[in-house]
Write a protein that binds this DNA or RNA. Structure first.
Lengths: 194, 194
DNA sequence: CAGCAGCGATAACATATGTTATGTAATCAA
DNA sequence: TTGATTACATAACATATGTTATCGCTGCTG
């Protein structure tokens, strides 16, 4: 959320710069845990290079919720904002370079920005967009079959399929790796409907 | 969103009262459309009595997304905030009494409130909660079987099952009415697992 | 280099879920 | 009240999806 503002509000750059010094740059290998399920989120994470996944453990199985790439920021939002244990683990998928900005500074920054004209309106708009994002994920399960969800992923967000291992994608789609493999075969053989 | 503040911030009552006169009270029968899919949302809706559903049409079939009851406020959020056509229809399920507050006044009210100390923080917290709500709906599809989703609905939000027709609930759970009926039979016969 | 672990494909079988059809009771409008 | 419509249950069958197991490939590590 936070860092996406940077692109939308270049005139805010002086504000960002003030907080640059508080960001901790980390170069980490794949499968590095950045936040562990059960712990309270203390940092906002910005990805300079690489990609990460947000997931939770369900009866011993990883369930992937979302994937993030270069120039995206993330956190375990509920934990970060409301100071409760995180329901999710955040872990790198590839070797990555990330910046961690402690909550304290994020909050300070928000306090500063909130007084800027029209910023609060933008904040509301962006949070409406986020809401819409998760709502759409949810709607997709009501509306579409797993095959259609995969097709949409392929056409709308192909970078995910290119960079994220298939077993992660399967749980994100709500299916098994076996079934995902079958779907791919079906599509490749041209027998997919629509 | 908006009207829920009233309970959390009783000291803000003077602000609400200013806008009372702009709210349009409506007594409407069941199946009254309050907002039509494709039109832009112009009002924030507050339910004094009754209940409503938010749904969309998918190949001729209604897909229900969410149900709202007394003392809850709603709108087609993306449409309302970002001035785009609504992806959803809002329709009463029971005969209801609702208040409609035009967007213009909602925005004015937000502008006033945003300058109150700590309000913006609360706004962020509440929007995080909303995000979490939809995220949880989405997670439920990744994590649970339809049977488990029904069980959770039954234990956590029984009022929905009591007041909302079963065919609406089925699409909300992402299944057919036939399957929902089977699930109920299975549970009633005590053969449900867990 | 050998061996191992993880990923992905595939097959056989089991279970869950959808489809279509039918019956019955409840609801609603004329 | 009647007749039409809607909600819900149920059955028979079709399809989708899960489970378990096996195999081959790749990349890693000793």
């Amino acid at each position: 959320m936070i860092f996406q503002f940077k692109e939308r509000f270049p005139e805010l750059n002086p504000y960002w710069d003030k907080y640059l010094e508080f960001q901790k740059r980390m170069e980490v290998p794949a499968k590095t845990v950045l936040l562990e399920e059960g712990k309270t989120s203390q940092n906002y994470i910005y990805i300079e290079k690489g990609c990460v996944r947000l997931y939770f453990n369900n009866n011993g199985q990883d369930k992937n919720v979302q994937f993030f790439f270069e120039h995206e920021g993330l956190t375990s939002i509920d934990s970060f904002i409301n100071d409760v244990p995180s329901a999710f683990t955040i872990e790198t998928i590839e070797p990555s370079v990330v910046y961690m900005l402690p909550k304290k500074y994020v909050m300070q920054l928000m306090d500063e920005l909130i007084h800027i004209h029209d910023f609060s309106k933008t904040l509301i708009q962006m949070s409406a967009q986020r809401q819409t994002h998760y709502m759409n994920e949810f709607l997709s399960f009501i509306r579409d079959t797993p095959e259609m969800r995969y097709q949409k992923l392929l056409s709308e967000r192909p970078h995910i399929i290119l960079r994220v291992p298939q077993n992660y994608i399967a749980s994100y789609l709500g299916i098994t790796t076996v079934h995902l493999s079958r779907i791919k075969t079906k599509i490749a053989s041209g027998k997919a409907h629509f």
